[in-house]
Measured scan of single mutants.
Amino acid sequence: MKVMIRKTATGHSAYVAKKDLEELIVEMENPALWGGKVTLANGWQLELPAMAADTPLPITVEARKL
Results as ranks from 00 to 15, higher is better:
22 E>D: 11
27 E>V: 08
43 G>W: 02
37 K>S: 09
52 A>S: 11
15 Y>T: 11
29 E>K: 04
29 E>Q: 09
41 A>V: 04
66 L>R: 05
58 P>Y: 06
39 T>Q: 06
3 V>R: 00
6 R>Y: 11
22 E>I: 09
53 A>T: 10
60 T>Y: 10
17 A>P: 14
65 K>S: 12
28 M>A: 12
20 D>Y: 09
14 A>K: 01
65 K>R: 12
64 R>A: 09
8 T>F: 06
63 A>N: 01
28 M>H: 11
4 M>A: 07
35 G>N: 05
42 N>F: 04
63 A>G: 06
35 G>R: 02
40 L>K: 00
33 L>T: 02
63 A>R: 00
18 K>I: 15
54 D>A: 07
53 A>R: 10
11 G>F: 04
24 L>E: 15
20 D>T: 07
38 V>Q: 00
56 P>V: 12
60 T>E: 14
46 L>S: 00
41 A>S: 11
32 A>F: 14
26 V>L: 08
5 I>K: 00
42 N>C: 09
45 Q>W: 08
55 T>H: 05
26 V>S: 05
35 G>F: 03
19 K>F: 15
40 L>I: 02
42 N>I: 06
14 A>T: 05
10 T>A: 12
5 I>Q: 00
30 N>Q: 10
31 P>M: 09
59 I>H: 08
35 G>L: 02
7 K>P: 07
59 I>E: 02
12 H>N: 04
20 D>P: 05
44 W>E: 03
20 D>G: 13
7 K>D: 03
46 L>D: 02
30 N>D: 06
38 V>R: 00
54 D>Q: 07
66 L>M: 12
24 L>N: 12
56 P>A: 11
56 P>H: 08
5 I>V: 07
16 V>E: 04
25 I>V: 07
63 A>H: 04
48 L>V: 04
16 V>F: 15
18 K>N: 14
52 A>V: 07
53 A>D: 12
50 A>H: 13
2 K>P: 09
37 K>P: 04
28 M>E: 03
48 L>G: 01
20 D>Q: 12
50 A>N: 13
40 L>H: 00
64 R>S: 09
7 K>R: 12
30 N>M: 09
18 K>Q: 15
12 H>G: 01
10 T>E: 12
27 E>Y: 14
30 N>R: 10
28 M>K: 11
33 L>F: 06
47 E>P: 00
41 A>N: 08
63 A>V: 14
50 A>Q: 12
19 K>D: 15
7 K>G: 06
62 E>M: 15
51 M>W: 05
8 T>E: 07
13 S>C: 13
21 L>G: 06
57 L>T: 05
64 R>L: 13
52 A>M: 08
61 V>R: 00
3 V>S: 00
64 R>V: 13
54 D>P: 02
45 Q>Y: 08
57 L>W: 07
49 P>G: 04
32 A>R: 13
46 L>P: 00
24 L>G: 08
62 E>W: 15
11 G>V: 03
23 E>T: 13
60 T>P: 03
47 E>D: 08
21 L>T: 10
12 H>S: 03
23 E>L: 15
22 E>M: 09
21 L>K: 10
42 N>D: 02
56 P>C: 07
63 A>F: 07
18 K>P: 10
25 I>M: 00
39 T>I: 12
66 L>V: 14
54 D>H: 08
9 A>Q: 11
57 L>N: 02
21 L>Y: 08
32 A>M: 13
49 P>L: 05
50 A>F: 13
39 T>V: 11
4 M>Q: 14
